[in-house]
Amino acid sequence: MSKANTQDNKHPFGAGRDLGGKIAWITGAGTGIGQAAAVALAGAGMEIILSGRRKANLDETATLVRAAGCEPVIETLDISDPTEVNKVVARIEERFGGIDVAVLSAGINIKNRTWEKLDVEGWDAVVKIDLNGAFYCCHALLPTMRKKKSGLIINVASWAGVHVSRMGGPAYNAAKHGMVAMSESINMEEAVNGIRSCALCPGEVATPLLEKRPVPVSDEQKAAMLQPEDLGETVLFLARLDERVCVNQLVISPTANRIYVGTKT
């Protein structure tokens, strides 16, 4: 079980809502943003369920989550399989009674991403995970959140979901734009059920996804990007907001934003 967050917060308006004992499910939890979100939420006292395709990566995250004060549950999952997504959500509901915060962070991109090099298989691979997989998770989550009349879904989209970018490529741009639109449609229909969705749209983040870039990224460039822990703190901020607050979309970028100054893909 999680240990309550004992940090002494001196902010005159408090630290936001108490997350102690609440349930968080994170997809793409093995690395990057998902891993950082899991650690940040565990530190706030939440119960953590970790999902991702690679068990070894989830075990690594689990070690970090334990250090933050929580014994996590691991649910290995390929979110492109809707049947398996439904099974995982059903098991979480049976064990914990529901999910309070879902961080849908699983995502991929491909190296051959320009129109000149992109093929049908590459397009399908990106859309299958980045858009369809997010839909399968939301579709499975909403019934259990409706029962509780409460719930926050954080859809980790991208800068490319707001601004079309050569850097991401057409498949990634399309999938992330779709994710942003899907996220807002949840707010339109489910606000009456106390459910909130935020499309979190970061610019460049120094995660393992950079390894799929057609042009290698230097260590110096990585250091200037957003770091996973920055996004972990952002997820924690969103989770701590009162349930009366819906941040429909949050765009966050590095101060040294290479998209503004121009870069090769």
Rank of each mutant, 00 (worst) to 15 (best):
L58N: 03
A125Q: 06
T76C: 11
A90Q: 12
G97K: 13
L50C: 10
L50W: 13
T144W: 14
I129R: 00
V88D: 11
T61Y: 12
G122A: 01
T27C: 02
E71V: 05
M46H: 07
K148N: 04
H139L: 08
F135S: 04
T76I: 10
D81Q: 03
T63H: 12
S51E: 12
P143R: 02
V73E: 14
D18V: 00
R95N: 15
G34F: 05
D100V: 12
L118D: 07
A29W: 07
D124R: 01
R53M: 07
Q35K: 13
L19S: 02
R91W: 05
A68S: 11
M46P: 15
V39P: 09
K117G: 05
N86A: 15
D81H: 01
A106C: 07
A106D: 05
R54H: 14
I99W: 14
K87R: 08
T61K: 12
W115S: 06
S51K: 11
G52Q: 08
L141R: 09
C138M: 11
E71P: 08
G28T: 03
L77E: 06
E116V: 15
L104V: 15
V103G: 12
E75N: 11
A56D: 14
N112D: 14
D119C: 02
I110A: 06
C138R: 00
E71N: 14
A125S: 07
V88L: 06
L77P: 12
A40G: 06
R95Y: 09
V101D: 02
A62T: 03
A106T: 12
S80M: 01
S80R: 05
G20V: 03
K149N: 05
L118H: 05
L58I: 05
I33Q: 01
G21K: 03
K55Y: 11
E93Y: 15
L19V: 08
G151W: 07
K148V: 08
L77K: 06
T63Q: 14
L118G: 04
D81R: 01
R146Q: 09
L152M: 03
A56H: 07
D78T: 08
L77I: 09
D100A: 13
R66W: 09
G32L: 12
I99A: 13
L19I: 05
D130Q: 02
S51R: 12
D124L: 03
V65G: 11
Q35N: 13
I23P: 02
L58A: 06
E47I: 15
T83S: 10
D124M: 01
C137S: 13
L141T: 03
S51A: 09
D100I: 12
A44F: 06
I153N: 04
W123R: 02
G43M: 12
I79A: 04
V127R: 00
V88P: 10
